[in-house]
Write a protein that binds this DNA or RNA. Structure first.
Lengths: 197, 197
DNA sequence: GTCTATATAGTGATAGAC
DNA sequence: GTCTATCACTATATAGAC
């Protein structure tokens, strides 16, 4: 299973370094900044070495996506179980660290292989989120579809993040206040001070 | 004012054709498919002619954005005044024709000139939307910030469109049902059957 | 207003030496 | 596992003929 799409071992330090630098480049300059030569320069290796570990750029992006998705899924599950799930979701989706997701969303529009993998991950995450809501459904929860709550909550959080990145901020404060007020009403008035880190 | 960024008259049929083909390419294959050679081939002209009308690719994208923004703004204002504004906004933001906006959003991440112009347009649209809500604020409207309602309504609609384009559909039906139910409660139970065209 | 021809630089990817 | 050298192709942009 390791034979034809990739050379080198999965645990190779160089390979990990290339994945790290790819994530950094995507976050700091966008996915378009990631190329064989540029990535090699950032990592301090020869361009051909990038293609030794990742036969194509698709393979590189897919590897970044996979490493992220696995790690983040576990983090999500932990948070979903540690506090009211909708509130956990709101905080998770507003985490600036999730900017990489936005970048992958854009990338998915232009690379079919990434699109397929990204969509599969997104559905997997969403399924787990809906299940967490249903699992912990308490009396305070309104009589609406858990799936709709998940989509609306994460969707608004992500739109706010995307717009902010473009310098669009009109109405953002009011929207954050509205959502956090609604969460407060759903879950009672425990502190909702969101700390991102 | 026509001198140094562009040659050719603003009403030139060839220029209009290039703008049309750019929009079509962006919608069908994404902004990355738009280049001097490709666009020229699609329009059936020589590559250099593209650069005769648009000195740089930035100028081309900016011209597409401007032509769209002007036309759509008028359409938005008409719809905002012809029916309950939040409902108008929901329908407007779900119009598949707005997929071009998503493409520009992605493009804005990678072209500073486009980012600035796009952000200015977005703030202008949002301002007009909030004003329409306030202008027609009726008894049925809930006691929440009009700006928050605008951001949430348009944001959810746009996220649904973006996800659909990637093949992510989990929870979408439920979300549409939730929003349309809320709109019904806000505005009474007049027909909400959405017709996109 | 439209074209050909070209300049300069970039890209992803491969072969093969070490 | 890492390198140099190179292939084939694309990019934006310009100069100047018609």
């Amino acid at each position: 299973m390791t034979a034809d799409r990739r050379r080198g071992s999965e645990s190779s330090p160089t390979r990990q370094l290339l994945l790290d630098e790819t994530e950094r480049l995507m976050l700091e300059e966008g996915y378009a900044a990631v190329g064989v030569r540029r990535l090699a320069r950032e990592a301090g290796v020869a361009p051909a070495l990038v293609l030794y570990y990742f036969k194509t750029l698709d393979d590189l992006f897919l590897a970044v996506l996979k490493r992220r998705a696995d790690g983040e899924f576990e983090r999500q599950q932990r948070l979903l179980d540690s506090k009211p799930p909708l509130q956990a979701l709101w905080e998770l989706s507003r985490d600036p660290g999730l900017a990489l997701i936005t970048e992958f969303m854009a990338l998915a529009n232009h690379r079919e292989a990434v699109r397929v993998a990204f969509a599969a991950d997104a559905e997997r995450y969403r399924k787990a989120q809906v299940e967490a809501i249903m699992r912990k459904a308490e009396s305070g929860l309104p009589d609406v579809s858990p799936a709709a709550l998940v989509v609306a909550t994460t969707g608004i959080a992500r739109i706010l993040g995307m717009e902010s990145a473009l310098g669009i901020t009109g109405g953002h404060e009011e929207t954050v206040a509205l959502i956090e007020d609604l969460l407060k009403r759903f879950y009672g008035s425990s502190s909702l001070a969101v700390d991102h880190d």
